[in-house]
């Protein structure tokens, strides 16, 4: 199968600094890839490069011709002066009609929100609406930037379950950035750990055991790692295959 996105020797800049160096990576159809890494490690920049918002200063990004991308941004800061209902929001930039909008909202459990103002939604509701909007164009690849930021733990667990369902139904690949290592890893086929470059990648088990990963997250985040290990011990039942 041809890869949806292929990066070869990519260097990326953000605000004048090279934040990522020499990135090689492929995204295959239908897989869930999670990008982890400390703050400032270039996770969001990598996602925005796939989107086309950041141009690489070196290397090549190849996208499958006609690739449709659905994007869920980290946050949506709509000014309160902009009146916008959920239904109208899904109609942008192309009119899709009430029926299709409601179908998309139903898929993400947000069907009751069609006539609500975006600025009145809670964080969890907004995430569902953003996901619904990203699904409207029937994407081949879904890009999610810290999609569960601001959600509590049950809320984010629910969100990841929804992502897994969406992948199953639509067959789209998913690439997401997250800081919730322990939750996300169990839901991913493949994990990429960034810190200025790809320091390790592979199945969640492989990455969690890699010395590079432990060097990054083993110190200073002992609590989180302990939590991860605990969860990880019970999460061997998903089908992980090694892409590394």
């Amino acid at each position: 199968m041809t890869a949806l996105v292929k990066m070869a020797g990519i260097d990326l800049r953000h605000g004048g600094d090279t934040v990522l160096h020499g990135v090689d990576l492929k995204i295959a159809p239908g897989e869930i890839v999670t990008v982890v890494g400390p703050n400032g490690s270039g996770k969001t920049t990598l996602l925005r490069a796939i989107l086309g918002a950041v141009k690489p200063v070196a290397g090549r990004i190849t996208k499958r011709p006609g690739l449709r991308i659905g994007y869920v941004p980290q946050k949506l800061a709509i000014d309160r002066t902009l009146p916008m209902t959920v239904g109208r929001f899904l109609d942008l930039p192309k009119k899709i009609g009430r029926q299709e909008a409601e179908a998309a909202l139903t898929r993400t459990g947000a069907e009751a929100l069609t006539d609500r103002q975006i600025t009145d939604l809670s964080g969890g509701q907004l995430q569902r609406v953003l996901l619904a909007r990203a699904l409207v164009g029937k994407p081949d690849l879904l890009l999610l930037d810290e999609p569960t930021q601001g959600l509590d733990q049950p809320g984010s667990a629910e969100f990841y379950t929804m992502i897994a369902e969406v992948r199953q139904v639509l067959g789209c690949a998913v690439m997401m950035v997250s800081h919730e290592l322990h939750v996300v890893m169990a839901a991913s086929d493949r994990v990429i750990c960034l810190n200025g470059h790809v320091c390790c990648h592979g199945t969640p088990e492989h990455v969690a055991g890699a010395p590079e990963y432990r060097a990054l997250f083993g110190t200073g985040t002992k609590g989180a790692l302990a939590l991860y290990r605990h969860e990880h011990d019970h999460a061997h039942d998903h089908a992980g295959h090694d892409h590394g």
Partner: peptide, 15 residues
């Protein structure tokens, strides 16, 4: 197009 890019530049770009 104006409205989309006012909402969020990256979302507009994805479209």
């Amino acid at each position: 197009a104006f409205l989309s890019s006012t909402l969020n530049e990256d979302l507009a770009l994805a479209a």
